[in-house]
Amino acid sequence: MPQSQTSETATRAVRLRETSSGQRGSGTAARTAKFIAGRVVGLAATLFAASLVVFFSRFVVPGDPARFLLRGRSPSKEAIAEVTKQYGLDKSPVEQYLNWIGGVLHGDFGRSLQYRDAVSNVLLDRLPVTLQLVALAAVFITVFGLAAGIIASLRRGRFTDRAILISSTALGAIPSFVIAILLIALFAVQLGWFPSFGSGDPGIDRFGHLVLPALALGLAFVALIARVTRSSMNEQFVREHVEVATSRGLTKPSVVLRHVLRNAISPILLVSGVLVAGLLVSSSIVEQTFGLSGIGSLLVQSVDRLDFPVVQAIVMIVVIAFVTVNTIVDLLQPLIDPRIAAGTETR
């Protein structure tokens, strides 16, 4: 074959490879964009459906907000009508919903019937305590749960593995308020290491007041993370790529970090996202037990006193946090395992 033809053939081959590579790259980008768009649309649809349920559930709950505002008195029809108009309760349910959702989009959840103040102001006074409590509990869950799961997986079939399994099962079965009472009896009453009541002042004092509540809130979830971590890592240990890495002479820490834990992290992340809502909801019991002034205890008080705007706001915040965190987890998973975005993941 003449040299010119050989050169031309080589050039065409290079161009073909570049074109093929470009098509693969554009195809991957399109799949990724479609994946992200689908998750965002799902987020918006879920929040819209949740807002409908949260708002209209008020109309099936017994109790009249207007009579609650005039409690302790024998209100006349004129007084009830005036209060009803003042709080917009005289409008149709659809109008009330449109006004409410419009305010929510601007950070306005209405006025509290109990505190006679903007719901946003009431929540801002309570929200920092709950966020700090949940954040500290999340740290405990991550550190203790991952550590226990990794140790159990590395020692699978031995005494340590069985001990961690039994302990995690027991912890998962104990209600958080029982754990709270045990922690108070041991660390607050007997040892006197931590305070047992109140939120404390911002800073180190607040941290000391939140240690026991965060442990009470997080220990049951530690058990769940430990079991998921152990199960996911055990599944990866029998995969072919791990056996190949081991046969190539890689050290055990390298195999565990690069080939086992990295591939096992996806289900752990998924469960962690679900735990966010669990922490926010469970915080109400813990806050009541330890006398913390967070949104959990506020929710209990508002339900008891029929303060519908505050109840709706707190429930909506929990739903937004749950759906948003799970969407973020969904978006992070393709970065860990690109097969998810490509739709080629196999189990």
Rank of each mutant, 00 (worst) to 15 (best):
M1H: 14
P2N: 15
E8L: 12
E18P: 00
Q23H: 08
G25W: 09
G27H: 08
G27S: 09
A29Q: 06
R31I: 00
K34L: 06
A45M: 10
A45W: 05
A45D: 11
T46H: 01
S51N: 05
S51Q: 15
L52H: 08
F55Y: 05
V60K: 01
V60M: 13
A66D: 08
A66M: 07
L69M: 05
L70D: 10
S74C: 12
A79Y: 01
I80Y: 02
A81H: 06
V94E: 05
N99W: 10
G103K: 07
G107M: 14
G107F: 10
G110M: 03
G110N: 10
N121E: 12
A138Y: 06
G149I: 05
S153H: 01
S153Y: 04
L154W: 01
R155H: 00
R156K: 13
R158N: 00
D161S: 08
A163D: 06
I164Q: 07
S167I: 03
F177W: 12
I179P: 05
I181S: 10
I181E: 08
L183H: 08
F187H: 08
Q190C: 00
Q190K: 02
W193A: 02
S196A: 11
G200F: 14
P202I: 03
V211S: 10
G218V: 12
L219H: 13
A223L: 07
I225F: 02
A226R: 00
R230Q: 04
S232F: 07
R239T: 12
E240C: 01
S247A: 15
G249K: 09
P253T: 09
L257I: 13
A264E: 13
I268T: 04
V271A: 13
L275Y: 01
L275V: 15
L280M: 05
V281C: 09
V286D: 07
F290W: 13
L292V: 13
G296S: 15
G296A: 13
V300T: 07
R305G: 09
M316Q: 11
V318Q: 15
A321K: 12
N326V: 04
T327D: 03
D330K: 02
Q333N: 13
